[in-house]
Simulated scan of single mutants.
Amino acid sequence: MCLLLESSIGSLDAEELFLRSSRGAAADPVAVDAFLVALASYWRHAGSQSADAMTRWMRARQVRSGEATVKWLRKRWG
């Protein structure tokens, strides 16, 4: 699921890719949602931390990952 979020940052649909896989199709939807909520919380917290010259790129990436995770959740929750 974490790697699929990278596709969501690009132009692919993480939910569609997830459901195409046998594990994704068989996954408990409540567990998937719970994991995505926890992951979104993590990314949002991490992305909100202060950044210096060495971590600026990492904070931006964390913010994008958080946005991609929330986008996936919104799609799942219709």
Rank of each mutant, 00 (worst) to 15 (best):
A53W: 09
M1H: 01
A38K: 11
S65F: 03
L4E: 10
S50A: 15
W43S: 00
R23I: 09
A51F: 02
F35A: 08
S21L: 14
A51N: 02
S22F: 10
I9Q: 11
L12D: 15
A25I: 06
W72M: 04
D13T: 06
L5M: 14
W72P: 01
R20L: 13
V32K: 01
G24P: 12
R23H: 13
M1E: 04
S7P: 03
A68L: 01
S11K: 11
R74T: 12
A14L: 05
V32C: 08
G78T: 13
L39P: 04
S65M: 15
V32E: 02
L36P: 04
G66S: 05
W43D: 00
D52H: 10
S11N: 12
T69Y: 00
R59Q: 08
R76N: 10
S7Q: 12
A68H: 00
A53Q: 08
G10E: 13
R61A: 00
D52W: 10
R23T: 12
G10R: 07
G66L: 00
S50L: 14
S48N: 07
S41Y: 08
W72N: 01
S7W: 05
G47L: 05
C2Y: 06
W57E: 11
L5F: 02
A25F: 10
S7E: 14
D33F: 12
T55L: 06
L4D: 07
R44S: 15
M54R: 13
G66Y: 00
G10Q: 10
C2I: 09
A53I: 10
F18C: 01
A51P: 01
